[in-house]
Design a protein around this nucleic acid. Structure first.
Lengths: 244, 244
DNA sequence: GAAATTCATTTGTCAGACATTTAAAAGTCT
DNA sequence: AGACTTTTAAATGTCTGACAAATGAATTTC
Protein backbone atom coordinates (compact mmCIF):
# COMPACT_ATOMS: atom_id res chain seq x y z
CA UNK A 1 0.00 0.00 0.00
CA UNK A 2 1.00 3.58 0.28
CA UNK A 3 1.43 5.70 -2.71
CA UNK A 4 -0.27 8.97 -3.18
CA UNK A 5 -0.23 10.98 -6.39
CA UNK A 6 -0.06 14.57 -5.28
CA UNK A 7 -1.70 16.09 -8.28
CA UNK A 8 -5.48 15.78 -7.86
CA UNK A 9 -7.49 16.89 -4.88
CA UNK A 10 -9.23 15.26 -1.95
CA UNK A 11 -6.26 13.84 -0.13
CA UNK A 12 -8.30 12.15 2.58
CA UNK A 13 -10.29 10.23 -0.02
CA UNK A 14 -7.09 9.07 -1.71
CA UNK A 15 -5.57 7.95 1.55
CA UNK A 16 -8.76 6.14 2.52
CA UNK A 17 -8.76 4.41 -0.87
CA UNK A 18 -5.13 3.36 -0.46
CA UNK A 19 -5.75 1.83 2.95
CA UNK A 20 -9.01 0.25 1.77
CA UNK A 21 -7.16 -1.39 -1.11
CA UNK A 22 -4.59 -2.71 1.31
CA UNK A 23 -7.38 -4.29 3.34
CA UNK A 24 -9.33 -5.86 0.48
CA UNK A 25 -6.14 -7.13 -1.13
CA UNK A 26 -5.17 -8.80 2.10
CA UNK A 27 -2.03 -6.76 2.70
CA UNK A 28 -3.60 -5.75 5.99
CA UNK A 29 -5.24 -8.59 7.83
CA UNK A 30 -7.97 -8.68 10.44
CA UNK A 31 -7.03 -7.21 13.83
CA UNK A 32 -3.78 -5.87 12.44
CA UNK A 33 -2.90 -2.46 13.80
CA UNK A 34 -2.43 0.41 11.40
CA UNK A 35 0.36 2.90 11.98
CA UNK A 36 -0.57 5.72 14.34
CA UNK A 37 -2.16 8.84 12.95
CA UNK A 38 1.09 10.73 13.33
CA UNK A 39 3.01 8.04 11.47
CA UNK A 40 0.45 7.91 8.68
CA UNK A 41 0.56 11.69 8.40
CA UNK A 42 4.30 11.52 8.10
CA UNK A 43 4.17 8.69 5.58
CA UNK A 44 1.67 10.37 3.26
CA UNK A 45 3.15 13.82 3.82
CA UNK A 46 -0.11 15.28 5.06
CA UNK A 47 -1.36 16.67 8.32
CA UNK A 48 -2.98 14.68 11.08
CA UNK A 49 -6.51 16.07 10.53
CA UNK A 50 -6.33 14.89 6.93
CA UNK A 51 -5.33 11.41 8.07
CA UNK A 52 -8.13 11.45 10.60
CA UNK A 53 -10.69 12.30 7.91
CA UNK A 54 -9.44 9.33 5.92
CA UNK A 55 -9.73 7.03 8.94
CA UNK A 56 -13.26 8.24 9.64
CA UNK A 57 -14.22 7.33 6.10
CA UNK A 58 -12.98 3.80 6.71
CA UNK A 59 -14.70 3.64 10.07
CA UNK A 60 -17.98 4.61 8.41
CA UNK A 61 -17.64 1.52 6.23
CA UNK A 62 -16.89 -0.69 9.23
CA UNK A 63 -13.44 -1.42 7.84
CA UNK A 64 -11.56 -0.30 10.94
CA UNK A 65 -12.18 0.27 14.60
CA UNK A 66 -10.23 2.66 16.80
CA UNK A 67 -9.15 2.33 20.37
CA UNK A 68 -7.71 4.95 22.63
CA UNK A 69 -4.88 4.64 25.05
CA UNK A 70 -1.26 3.57 25.08
CA UNK A 71 -1.69 0.41 23.01
CA UNK A 72 -4.55 1.94 21.05
CA UNK A 73 -4.78 2.86 17.43
CA UNK A 74 -6.75 1.86 14.36
CA UNK A 75 -7.26 -1.84 13.76
CA UNK A 76 -8.58 -3.71 10.76
CA UNK A 77 -12.02 -4.83 11.68
CA UNK A 78 -13.61 -8.17 10.84
CA UNK A 79 -16.74 -7.29 8.90
CA UNK A 80 -19.45 -9.19 10.75
CA UNK A 81 -22.72 -10.38 9.29
CA UNK A 82 -24.51 -7.90 11.54
CA UNK A 83 -22.52 -4.99 10.17
CA UNK A 84 -23.12 -6.19 6.65
CA UNK A 85 -26.85 -6.58 7.35
CA UNK A 86 -27.26 -3.06 8.64
CA UNK A 87 -25.25 -1.56 5.81
CA UNK A 88 -27.30 -3.49 3.28
CA UNK A 89 -30.53 -2.36 4.87
CA UNK A 90 -29.48 1.28 4.95
CA UNK A 91 -28.33 1.18 1.34
CA UNK A 92 -31.41 -0.65 0.10
CA UNK A 93 -33.77 1.65 1.96
CA UNK A 94 -32.14 4.77 0.57
CA UNK A 95 -31.98 3.32 -2.91
CA UNK A 96 -35.70 2.64 -2.85
CA UNK A 97 -36.76 5.91 -1.27
CA UNK A 98 -34.52 8.14 -3.36
CA UNK A 99 -35.17 6.65 -6.77
CA UNK A 100 -38.93 6.43 -6.82
CA UNK A 101 -38.94 2.68 -7.20
CA UNK A 102 -42.39 1.46 -8.11
CA UNK A 103 -44.07 -0.69 -5.54
CA UNK A 104 -44.57 -3.59 -7.93
CA UNK A 105 -40.89 -3.62 -8.87
CA UNK A 106 -39.73 -3.86 -5.27
CA UNK A 107 -42.43 -6.36 -4.43
CA UNK A 108 -41.57 -8.59 -7.36
CA UNK A 109 -37.88 -8.59 -6.44
CA UNK A 110 -38.61 -9.36 -2.84
CA UNK A 111 -40.80 -12.38 -3.47
CA UNK A 112 -38.57 -13.68 -6.24
CA UNK A 113 -35.66 -13.74 -3.82
CA UNK A 114 -37.75 -15.21 -1.06
CA UNK A 115 -38.99 -18.02 -3.29
CA UNK A 116 -35.35 -18.80 -3.97
CA UNK A 117 -34.93 -19.57 -0.28
CA UNK A 118 -38.06 -21.67 0.06
CA UNK A 119 -36.71 -25.00 -1.24
CA UNK A 120 -33.62 -24.80 0.95
CA UNK A 121 -35.67 -23.75 3.96
CA UNK A 122 -38.12 -26.60 3.44
CA UNK A 123 -35.21 -28.99 3.35
CA UNK A 124 -33.17 -27.71 6.28
CA UNK A 125 -35.29 -25.62 8.62
CA UNK A 126 -34.75 -26.48 12.27
CA UNK A 127 -37.51 -26.88 14.85
CA UNK A 128 -36.37 -23.52 16.13
CA UNK A 129 -37.08 -21.72 12.88
CA UNK A 130 -40.46 -23.36 12.68
CA UNK A 131 -41.27 -22.36 16.24
CA UNK A 132 -40.38 -18.76 15.47
CA UNK A 133 -42.64 -18.77 12.44
CA UNK A 134 -45.52 -20.25 14.44
CA UNK A 135 -45.14 -17.82 17.31
CA UNK A 136 -45.04 -14.84 14.96
CA UNK A 137 -48.19 -16.13 13.26
CA UNK A 138 -49.83 -16.39 16.67
CA UNK A 139 -48.83 -12.84 17.50
CA UNK A 140 -50.18 -11.59 14.19
CA UNK A 141 -53.55 -13.01 15.12
CA UNK A 142 -53.83 -11.10 18.39
CA UNK A 143 -56.56 -8.44 18.14
CA UNK A 144 -54.86 -5.66 20.10
CA UNK A 145 -51.71 -5.60 18.00
CA UNK A 146 -50.69 -2.20 16.64
CA UNK A 147 -49.95 -1.77 12.96
CA UNK A 148 -46.28 -1.21 13.70
CA UNK A 149 -46.04 -4.38 15.76
CA UNK A 150 -47.82 -6.35 13.05
CA UNK A 151 -45.31 -5.13 10.48
CA UNK A 152 -42.39 -6.01 12.73
CA UNK A 153 -43.82 -9.46 13.27
CA UNK A 154 -44.29 -9.84 9.53
CA UNK A 155 -40.61 -9.09 8.99
CA UNK A 156 -39.64 -11.53 11.75
CA UNK A 157 -41.73 -14.27 10.14
CA UNK A 158 -40.14 -13.86 6.75
CA UNK A 159 -36.75 -13.55 8.38
CA UNK A 160 -37.23 -16.93 10.05
CA UNK A 161 -38.26 -18.41 6.72
CA UNK A 162 -35.10 -17.13 5.07
CA UNK A 163 -32.83 -18.10 7.96
CA UNK A 164 -34.30 -21.57 7.80
CA UNK A 165 -32.32 -22.13 4.62
CA UNK A 166 -29.24 -22.29 6.84
CA UNK A 167 -27.18 -20.24 4.43
CA UNK A 168 -25.79 -17.07 6.02
CA UNK A 169 -24.86 -15.57 2.66
CA UNK A 170 -28.44 -15.96 1.52
CA UNK A 171 -29.72 -14.46 4.78
CA UNK A 172 -27.43 -11.50 4.34
CA UNK A 173 -28.56 -10.88 0.79
CA UNK A 174 -32.23 -11.15 1.71
CA UNK A 175 -32.05 -8.91 4.77
CA UNK A 176 -31.84 -5.80 2.65
CA UNK A 177 -34.62 -6.83 0.32
CA UNK A 178 -37.08 -7.68 3.08
CA UNK A 179 -36.34 -4.86 5.48
CA UNK A 180 -36.11 -2.16 2.84
CA UNK A 181 -39.61 -3.08 1.73
CA UNK A 182 -40.96 -2.25 5.17
CA UNK A 183 -41.73 1.45 4.52
CA UNK A 184 -43.45 0.58 1.27
CA UNK A 185 -45.43 -2.16 2.95
CA UNK A 186 -46.51 0.19 5.71
CA UNK A 187 -48.01 2.45 3.09
CA UNK A 188 -50.40 -0.40 2.36
CA UNK A 189 -50.82 -1.83 5.81
CA UNK A 190 -52.37 1.28 7.28
CA UNK A 191 -55.03 1.38 4.63
CA UNK A 192 -56.10 -1.86 3.17
CA UNK A 193 -54.35 -4.94 4.47
CA UNK A 194 -56.50 -7.75 5.78
CA UNK A 195 -54.71 -9.39 8.64
CA UNK A 196 -56.83 -12.50 8.47
CA UNK A 197 -55.83 -13.10 4.87
CA UNK A 198 -52.14 -12.55 5.61
CA UNK A 199 -52.17 -14.78 8.67
CA UNK A 200 -53.86 -17.53 6.69
CA UNK A 201 -51.20 -17.40 3.99
CA UNK A 202 -48.45 -17.34 6.59
CA UNK A 203 -49.91 -20.42 8.23
CA UNK A 204 -49.97 -22.25 4.91
CA UNK A 205 -46.33 -21.29 4.32
CA UNK A 206 -45.38 -22.62 7.73
CA UNK A 207 -47.33 -25.81 7.03
CA UNK A 208 -45.49 -26.33 3.75
CA UNK A 209 -42.10 -25.67 5.36
CA UNK A 210 -42.94 -28.05 8.20
CA UNK A 211 -44.00 -30.75 5.74
CA UNK A 212 -40.84 -30.07 3.71
CA UNK A 213 -42.90 -29.41 0.63
CA UNK A 214 -40.79 -26.94 -1.33
CA UNK A 215 -43.15 -26.51 -4.27
CA UNK A 216 -46.10 -25.80 -1.99
CA UNK A 217 -44.13 -23.16 -0.11
CA UNK A 218 -43.18 -21.48 -3.36
CA UNK A 219 -46.76 -21.56 -4.53
CA UNK A 220 -48.11 -19.93 -1.39
CA UNK A 221 -45.39 -17.29 -1.58
CA UNK A 222 -46.59 -16.54 -5.08
CA UNK A 223 -50.14 -16.23 -3.77
CA UNK A 224 -48.90 -13.82 -1.14
CA UNK A 225 -47.16 -11.82 -3.84
CA UNK A 226 -50.31 -11.63 -5.93
CA UNK A 227 -52.33 -10.54 -2.93
CA UNK A 228 -49.76 -7.88 -2.02
CA UNK A 229 -49.57 -6.62 -5.59
CA UNK A 230 -53.36 -6.34 -5.73
CA UNK A 231 -53.37 -4.31 -2.55
CA UNK A 232 -50.68 -2.07 -3.96
CA UNK A 233 -52.65 -1.46 -7.14
CA UNK A 234 -55.78 -0.62 -5.18
CA UNK A 235 -53.99 1.84 -2.96
CA UNK A 236 -52.37 3.47 -5.98
CA UNK A 237 -55.67 3.70 -7.83
CA UNK A 238 -57.44 5.18 -4.84
CA UNK A 239 -54.69 7.69 -4.40
CA UNK A 240 -54.79 8.68 -8.07
CA UNK A 241 -58.57 9.08 -7.95
CA UNK A 242 -58.39 11.24 -4.85
CA UNK A 243 -55.79 13.59 -6.33
CA UNK A 244 -57.38 13.64 -9.82
CA UNK B 1 -33.16 17.44 13.22
CA UNK B 2 -30.05 17.73 15.30
CA UNK B 3 -29.82 16.96 18.91
CA UNK B 4 -26.62 15.80 20.49
CA UNK B 5 -26.31 14.34 23.98
CA UNK B 6 -22.98 15.56 25.28
CA UNK B 7 -22.27 12.68 27.62
CA UNK B 8 -20.83 9.82 25.57
CA UNK B 9 -17.84 10.02 23.29
CA UNK B 10 -17.20 10.08 19.57
CA UNK B 11 -18.85 13.37 18.67
CA UNK B 12 -18.26 13.04 14.94
CA UNK B 13 -20.05 9.69 14.88
CA UNK B 14 -23.03 11.17 16.72
CA UNK B 15 -23.24 14.12 14.38
CA UNK B 16 -22.97 11.84 11.36
CA UNK B 17 -25.77 9.69 12.78
CA UNK B 18 -27.97 12.74 13.38
CA UNK B 19 -27.54 13.97 9.79
CA UNK B 20 -27.94 10.46 8.42
CA UNK B 21 -31.22 10.09 10.29
CA UNK B 22 -32.38 13.39 8.85
CA UNK B 23 -31.65 12.08 5.37
CA UNK B 24 -33.28 8.66 5.74
CA UNK B 25 -36.31 10.15 7.43
CA UNK B 26 -36.75 12.54 4.56
CA UNK B 27 -36.17 15.71 6.57
CA UNK B 28 -33.34 16.44 4.15
CA UNK B 29 -34.21 15.79 0.54
CA UNK B 30 -32.06 15.04 -2.46
CA UNK B 31 -29.86 17.92 -3.66
CA UNK B 32 -30.71 19.94 -0.59
CA UNK B 33 -27.76 21.88 0.75
CA UNK B 34 -26.63 21.27 4.29
CA UNK B 35 -25.54 24.20 6.45
CA UNK B 36 -21.91 25.16 6.02
CA UNK B 37 -19.29 23.49 8.15
CA UNK B 38 -18.97 26.60 10.29
CA UNK B 39 -22.72 26.75 10.84
CA UNK B 40 -22.88 23.04 11.72
CA UNK B 41 -20.00 23.48 14.13
CA UNK B 42 -21.84 26.32 15.77
CA UNK B 43 -25.10 24.40 15.87
CA UNK B 44 -23.63 21.28 17.46
CA UNK B 45 -21.25 23.28 19.67
CA UNK B 46 -18.17 21.54 18.30
CA UNK B 47 -15.20 22.58 16.25
CA UNK B 48 -14.98 22.55 12.48
CA UNK B 49 -12.61 19.55 12.24
CA UNK B 50 -15.11 17.49 14.20
CA UNK B 51 -17.89 18.48 11.82
CA UNK B 52 -15.63 17.66 8.91
CA UNK B 53 -14.97 14.17 10.26
CA UNK B 54 -18.71 13.64 10.48
CA UNK B 55 -19.22 14.82 6.91
CA UNK B 56 -16.46 12.54 5.65
CA UNK B 57 -18.24 9.61 7.25
CA UNK B 58 -21.37 10.48 5.31
CA UNK B 59 -19.40 11.01 2.12
CA UNK B 60 -17.91 7.53 2.52
CA UNK B 61 -21.44 6.13 2.43
CA UNK B 62 -22.32 8.16 -0.67
CA UNK B 63 -24.93 10.07 1.32
CA UNK B 64 -23.55 13.52 0.52
CA UNK B 65 -21.32 15.18 -2.02
CA UNK B 66 -19.29 18.31 -1.39
CA UNK B 67 -18.52 21.20 -3.65
CA UNK B 68 -16.10 24.02 -3.12
CA UNK B 69 -16.59 27.67 -3.84
CA UNK B 70 -18.98 30.44 -3.01
CA UNK B 71 -22.20 28.52 -3.59
CA UNK B 72 -20.59 25.24 -2.56
CA UNK B 73 -21.19 23.12 0.46
CA UNK B 74 -22.42 19.64 1.26
CA UNK B 75 -25.46 18.40 -0.65
CA UNK B 76 -27.64 15.38 -0.10
CA UNK B 77 -26.72 12.95 -2.81
CA UNK B 78 -29.11 10.76 -4.75
CA UNK B 79 -27.88 7.22 -4.14
CA UNK B 80 -27.55 5.83 -7.64
CA UNK B 81 -27.76 2.18 -8.60
CA UNK B 82 -24.09 2.33 -9.54
CA UNK B 83 -23.10 3.55 -6.10
CA UNK B 84 -25.25 0.91 -4.49
CA UNK B 85 -23.74 -1.78 -6.74
CA UNK B 86 -20.17 -0.92 -5.84
CA UNK B 87 -20.94 -0.66 -2.14
CA UNK B 88 -22.69 -4.03 -2.24
CA UNK B 89 -19.79 -5.61 -4.07
CA UNK B 90 -17.23 -4.23 -1.63
CA UNK B 91 -19.25 -5.34 1.37
CA UNK B 92 -19.98 -8.78 -0.02
CA UNK B 93 -16.37 -9.35 -1.03
CA UNK B 94 -15.07 -8.41 2.40
CA UNK B 95 -17.73 -10.44 4.15
CA UNK B 96 -16.74 -13.52 2.20
CA UNK B 97 -12.99 -13.06 2.48
CA UNK B 98 -12.95 -12.13 6.17
CA UNK B 99 -15.30 -14.78 7.51
CA UNK B 100 -13.96 -17.92 5.91
CA UNK B 101 -17.16 -18.61 4.05
CA UNK B 102 -17.12 -22.09 2.60
CA UNK B 103 -17.15 -22.29 -1.14
CA UNK B 104 -20.27 -24.41 -1.26
CA UNK B 105 -22.20 -21.94 0.90
CA UNK B 106 -21.41 -19.00 -1.33
CA UNK B 107 -21.99 -21.06 -4.45
CA UNK B 108 -25.36 -22.29 -3.26
CA UNK B 109 -26.50 -18.77 -2.44
CA UNK B 110 -25.35 -17.43 -5.75
CA UNK B 111 -27.18 -19.98 -7.88
CA UNK B 112 -30.30 -19.90 -5.73
CA UNK B 113 -30.55 -16.15 -6.31
CA UNK B 114 -29.78 -16.50 -9.98
CA UNK B 115 -32.47 -19.13 -10.44
CA UNK B 116 -34.90 -16.65 -8.91
CA UNK B 117 -34.21 -14.34 -11.84
CA UNK B 118 -34.48 -16.98 -14.54
CA UNK B 119 -38.29 -17.05 -14.92
CA UNK B 120 -38.52 -13.28 -15.15
CA UNK B 121 -35.61 -13.11 -17.54
CA UNK B 122 -37.12 -15.78 -19.76
CA UNK B 123 -40.32 -13.76 -19.88
CA UNK B 124 -38.93 -10.29 -20.43
CA UNK B 125 -35.38 -10.41 -21.81
CA UNK B 126 -34.84 -8.05 -24.71
CA UNK B 127 -32.98 -8.89 -27.91
CA UNK B 128 -30.19 -6.80 -26.47
CA UNK B 129 -29.74 -8.96 -23.40
CA UNK B 130 -29.77 -12.06 -25.56
CA UNK B 131 -27.18 -10.57 -27.91
CA UNK B 132 -24.92 -9.80 -24.95
CA UNK B 133 -25.22 -13.35 -23.69
CA UNK B 134 -24.43 -14.77 -27.12
CA UNK B 135 -21.44 -12.52 -27.67
CA UNK B 136 -20.02 -13.38 -24.27
CA UNK B 137 -20.44 -17.07 -25.03
CA UNK B 138 -18.58 -16.53 -28.31
CA UNK B 139 -15.77 -14.76 -26.50
CA UNK B 140 -15.54 -17.57 -23.95
CA UNK B 141 -14.92 -19.99 -26.82
CA UNK B 142 -11.92 -18.09 -28.20
CA UNK B 143 -8.72 -20.10 -27.61
CA UNK B 144 -6.35 -17.24 -26.76
CA UNK B 145 -8.45 -15.87 -23.94
CA UNK B 146 -6.66 -15.33 -20.63
CA UNK B 147 -8.11 -16.76 -17.44
CA UNK B 148 -8.87 -13.26 -16.17
CA UNK B 149 -10.72 -12.34 -19.35
CA UNK B 150 -12.68 -15.59 -19.23
CA UNK B 151 -13.78 -14.82 -15.67
CA UNK B 152 -14.79 -11.28 -16.60
CA UNK B 153 -16.80 -12.61 -19.52
CA UNK B 154 -18.42 -15.16 -17.24
CA UNK B 155 -19.55 -12.36 -14.93
CA UNK B 156 -20.83 -10.34 -17.90
CA UNK B 157 -22.85 -13.32 -19.13
CA UNK B 158 -24.55 -13.88 -15.82
CA UNK B 159 -25.04 -10.16 -15.43
CA UNK B 160 -26.91 -10.06 -18.73
CA UNK B 161 -29.06 -12.97 -17.59
CA UNK B 162 -29.97 -11.14 -14.40
CA UNK B 163 -30.53 -7.80 -16.10
CA UNK B 164 -32.83 -9.54 -18.54
CA UNK B 165 -35.38 -9.79 -15.77
CA UNK B 166 -35.86 -6.06 -16.19
CA UNK B 167 -36.02 -5.47 -12.47
CA UNK B 168 -33.35 -3.02 -11.25
CA UNK B 169 -33.87 -3.98 -7.62
CA UNK B 170 -33.16 -7.59 -8.49
CA UNK B 171 -30.10 -6.58 -10.51
CA UNK B 172 -28.81 -4.58 -7.59
CA UNK B 173 -29.26 -7.44 -5.16
CA UNK B 174 -27.59 -9.92 -7.46
CA UNK B 175 -24.60 -7.76 -8.33
CA UNK B 176 -23.02 -8.36 -4.96
CA UNK B 177 -23.63 -12.08 -4.99
CA UNK B 178 -22.21 -12.64 -8.44
CA UNK B 179 -19.23 -10.32 -8.28
CA UNK B 180 -18.20 -11.26 -4.78
CA UNK B 181 -17.96 -14.87 -5.92
CA UNK B 182 -15.33 -13.90 -8.46
CA UNK B 183 -12.29 -14.39 -6.20
CA UNK B 184 -13.59 -17.75 -5.04
CA UNK B 185 -14.32 -18.77 -8.61
CA UNK B 186 -10.83 -17.78 -9.70
CA UNK B 187 -9.45 -20.20 -7.17
CA UNK B 188 -11.05 -22.92 -9.25
CA UNK B 189 -10.64 -21.47 -12.71
CA UNK B 190 -6.87 -21.52 -12.62
CA UNK B 191 -6.78 -25.18 -11.76
CA UNK B 192 -9.60 -27.31 -12.94
CA UNK B 193 -12.28 -25.54 -14.89
CA UNK B 194 -13.20 -26.94 -18.29
CA UNK B 195 -14.12 -24.08 -20.54
CA UNK B 196 -15.85 -26.32 -23.03
CA UNK B 197 -18.21 -27.62 -20.37
CA UNK B 198 -18.98 -24.12 -19.11
CA UNK B 199 -19.55 -22.71 -22.58
CA UNK B 200 -21.89 -25.57 -23.37
CA UNK B 201 -23.97 -24.92 -20.29
CA UNK B 202 -24.01 -21.20 -21.00
CA UNK B 203 -25.26 -21.88 -24.51
CA UNK B 204 -28.07 -24.04 -23.17
CA UNK B 205 -29.04 -21.28 -20.74
CA UNK B 206 -29.14 -18.76 -23.56
CA UNK B 207 -31.22 -21.16 -25.65
CA UNK B 208 -33.73 -21.58 -22.84
CA UNK B 209 -33.95 -17.83 -22.26
CA UNK B 210 -34.39 -17.23 -25.96
CA UNK B 211 -37.15 -19.84 -26.14
CA UNK B 212 -38.71 -18.29 -23.03
CA UNK B 213 -38.58 -21.64 -21.26
CA UNK B 214 -38.24 -20.70 -17.61
CA UNK B 215 -38.10 -24.21 -16.20
CA UNK B 216 -35.38 -25.23 -18.64
CA UNK B 217 -33.27 -22.22 -17.71
CA UNK B 218 -33.60 -23.05 -14.03
CA UNK B 219 -32.66 -26.66 -14.69
CA UNK B 220 -29.50 -25.76 -16.59
CA UNK B 221 -28.54 -23.31 -13.87
CA UNK B 222 -28.87 -26.16 -11.41
CA UNK B 223 -26.61 -28.27 -13.61
CA UNK B 224 -24.09 -25.46 -13.65
CA UNK B 225 -24.27 -25.30 -9.88
CA UNK B 226 -23.67 -29.01 -9.55
CA UNK B 227 -20.72 -28.81 -11.91
CA UNK B 228 -19.25 -25.86 -10.01
CA UNK B 229 -19.76 -27.55 -6.66
CA UNK B 230 -18.01 -30.69 -7.94
CA UNK B 231 -15.06 -28.62 -9.09
CA UNK B 232 -14.93 -26.93 -5.70
CA UNK B 233 -14.92 -30.24 -3.88
CA UNK B 234 -12.14 -31.60 -6.08
CA UNK B 235 -9.96 -28.55 -5.57
CA UNK B 236 -10.51 -28.74 -1.83
CA UNK B 237 -9.74 -32.45 -1.69
CA UNK B 238 -6.59 -32.01 -3.75
CA UNK B 239 -5.49 -29.19 -1.53
CA UNK B 240 -6.15 -31.21 1.62
CA UNK B 241 -4.21 -34.17 0.24
CA UNK B 242 -1.24 -32.04 -0.71
CA UNK B 243 -1.00 -30.42 2.71
CA UNK B 244 -1.73 -33.64 4.62
C1' DG C 1 -23.74 46.07 -23.06
C1' DA C 2 -19.93 42.93 -22.63
C1' DA C 3 -15.71 41.73 -20.69
C1' DA C 4 -12.57 41.90 -16.99
C1' DT C 5 -11.82 42.43 -12.14
C1' DT C 6 -12.73 42.24 -7.41
C1' DC C 7 -14.83 40.10 -3.61
C1' DA C 8 -17.09 37.16 -0.37
C1' DT C 9 -18.15 32.51 0.77
C1' DT C 10 -17.04 27.82 1.37
C1' DT C 11 -14.36 23.73 1.39
C1' DG C 12 -9.47 21.72 1.71
C1' DT C 13 -5.38 21.66 4.34
C1' DC C 14 -2.05 22.63 7.82
C1' DA C 15 0.24 23.58 12.43
C1' DG C 16 0.15 23.38 17.16
C1' DA C 17 -1.94 22.65 21.41
C1' DC C 18 -4.54 20.47 25.21
C1' DA C 19 -7.68 16.78 27.14
C1' DT C 20 -8.59 11.96 27.85
C1' DT C 21 -7.80 7.22 27.90
C1' DT C 22 -5.07 3.27 28.63
C1' DA C 23 -1.50 0.04 29.51
C1' DA C 24 3.04 -0.54 30.82
C1' DA C 25 6.87 0.96 33.69
C1' DA C 26 8.46 2.62 37.99
C1' DG C 27 8.07 3.07 42.66
C1' DT C 28 6.46 1.83 47.40
C1' DC C 29 4.90 -0.73 51.15
C1' DT C 30 4.23 -5.06 53.62
C1' DA D 1 9.88 -11.03 46.92
C1' DG D 2 5.23 -9.93 45.96
C1' DA D 3 1.25 -7.01 45.73
C1' DC D 4 -0.40 -2.52 45.41
C1' DT D 5 -0.03 2.35 44.04
C1' DT D 6 1.86 6.01 41.31
C1' DT D 7 3.94 7.81 37.38
C1' DT D 8 4.68 8.03 32.67
C1' DA D 9 4.33 7.59 27.79
C1' DA D 10 1.66 6.81 23.75
C1' DA D 11 -2.31 7.19 21.37
C1' DT D 12 -6.81 9.06 19.99
C1' DG D 13 -10.35 12.96 20.61
C1' DT D 14 -11.02 17.75 20.30
C1' DC D 15 -10.15 22.74 19.82
C1' DT D 16 -8.24 27.16 17.98
C1' DG D 17 -6.55 29.71 14.36
C1' DA D 18 -4.83 30.28 10.05
C1' DC D 19 -4.03 30.06 5.02
C1' DA D 20 -4.88 28.12 0.25
C1' DA D 21 -7.93 27.20 -3.49
C1' DA D 22 -12.14 27.24 -5.89
C1' DT D 23 -16.21 29.44 -7.46
C1' DG D 24 -20.12 32.22 -8.32
C1' DA D 25 -21.80 36.93 -7.74
C1' DA D 26 -21.14 41.71 -7.55
C1' DT D 27 -18.49 45.46 -9.23
C1' DT D 28 -15.82 47.97 -12.27
C1' DT D 29 -14.07 49.17 -16.70
C1' DC D 30 -14.00 49.77 -21.61
Amino acid sequence: MKIDPNKPADLSAQIAAAIRDAIVSGALIVDERLPSEAELADHFHVSRPTVREALKRLAAQSLIRTQRGATGGAFVRRLSYEDAYSQQITTSTLLLSMNAIRFDTACEARYALERACAPLSAQRRSADHLATMRSEIFRQGQPGLTDEAFCASDVAFHRALVDGAGNPVLSYQLAGAVEAMQPLMNMITFTARSRTEIVGLHARIADAIEAREAAAAEAVLSELEVYTQDLGRNVMAERAQRSG
